[in-house]
Simulated assay, not measured.
Amino acid sequence: MANEKPVPRGRRRHHGDNRITIGDVAKEAGVAPITVSRALNTPDKVSAKLRERVDQAVARLGYVPNLIAGGLASAGTRVIPVVVPSLSILTFIEVVHGIQQTLENAGYQVLLGSTDFDLDREATLVDSVLGYSPSGVILTGLRHHDRTVRRLQAWGRPVIEIMELGTSCIDMNVGIDNRRAGACMARHLLDRGYRRIAFLGVGMTRDYRAQQRYEGHREELAAAGVESDLLFASEAPSSYSAGRQVFLEAMEARPDLEAIHFANDNLAAGALLEANRRGIRVPEDIAMGSYLGLSLGEHLTPRLTTVSVPRFEMGVEAAKLLLECLEGRSPSRPRIDIGYRLTVREST
């Protein structure tokens, strides 16, 4: 079952000898190693009862079968899987670019996987790639299936979680505090004198990091004593058209709005372009602030105020952490807050 909140986890040593073996599974299941091998590789040759015992032992221990043989499996290949929620959103593309450039310069190859913000799909991807004995893994976020966490903890090789900062990581972590980033933009809008402020997002039931930014936004407004629960959202994928549509819905429902805090720059761009088409003045009629720091924000009219995140640098730092471990060093900073900055422009 997927974790609704990050479960307590901690760093562990990266020693191949600590990995769970087929002998460990056999002992846990109370059968011979050859029985475990048959249950995993030719399940039709063992009884359903034995298969169930072996499967339960595999799940409890987080055992990862090796799909390549001999010394290569024990040493690890020079391939690093990088699992992200989407390969069509610029946020993740820029992070992957930083990872890829750094790892390729060190002689490693990146294998990309996309989950579409689906933890079930992430678990399946992790199960698949670990069997090919990569040297390490980079995942997005701190929330995963319990099964994924157990497998990676038992695996014993470096794991980096990116995009989100927290103490309950599997191993190492590079990201930002999304709640604080949301509060940062809310505070800016309050400081500008706006009081009727809405948050606008899409897909927030799956993109929980956007939900975290909304929570930071809401807490900041509540602390200021203003209406804090103005949320307009849809389950559509993030796009200019989705931003346009939800913006129009918000303006129709609450024509008294003074400012909108968008979950990302793509949504804000769609809304700002629509406002220009309709003669809605920004920021005179409605102010717009956002999150991400995409370069397109500098080319809109008016230019977009946003909370900028160093995405390429985040990828570089994640790759550097991984390389330190692969070179046998213990990173001095296994948890890195990559930070963000408020970029104030004319839209607020």
Rank of each mutant, 00 (worst) to 15 (best):
A198V: 01
L130P: 07
D44E: 15
R303W: 05
I93K: 12
A233M: 09
P43H: 07
P255S: 13
Y240T: 02
K320F: 00
S330I: 14
I260L: 13
R151P: 11
P85A: 15
P334G: 11
D44F: 08
R150C: 00
R11F: 11
D285I: 02
A287G: 07
A154P: 06
S133D: 00
G131F: 12
R150T: 06
Y208I: 01
T305V: 06
A181D: 09
G201K: 11
H145G: 07
I338P: 07
Y132H: 14
E227H: 13
V84C: 03
S308I: 02
R53T: 01
R179T: 12
R209W: 01
G71C: 11
R157K: 15
D177P: 06
G216V: 02
L294K: 06
L61R: 15
V129S: 04
T102W: 09
E346S: 12
R209F: 00
A181G: 10
E346Y: 13
H144Y: 04
G293Q: 12
A233Q: 14
L321R: 07
S295P: 06
C184M: 13
N266H: 05
D55M: 13
E215P: 00
A26Y: 10
G23M: 02
K49Y: 10
G315Q: 04
L119Q: 07
P6T: 12
L125C: 00
A32E: 05
P255I: 01
A259K: 04
L72E: 01
R38G: 01
S74I: 13
R19S: 01
Y108P: 03
M251V: 05
T343V: 15
H15P: 01
Q153W: 02
A181W: 07
E219H: 05
L130N: 05
L142P: 10
A224G: 04
P283V: 10
T42H: 13
G339R: 05
R60G: 04
L165M: 05
A223Q: 11
T124P: 00
S228C: 12
G279Q: 10
A106Q: 11
A29N: 06
K320A: 00
A287C: 03
G107S: 08
I160G: 10
D55Q: 15
R9G: 04
K27P: 04
A250N: 08
A32I: 02
T124A: 15
T102R: 13
P310G: 09
R9M: 14
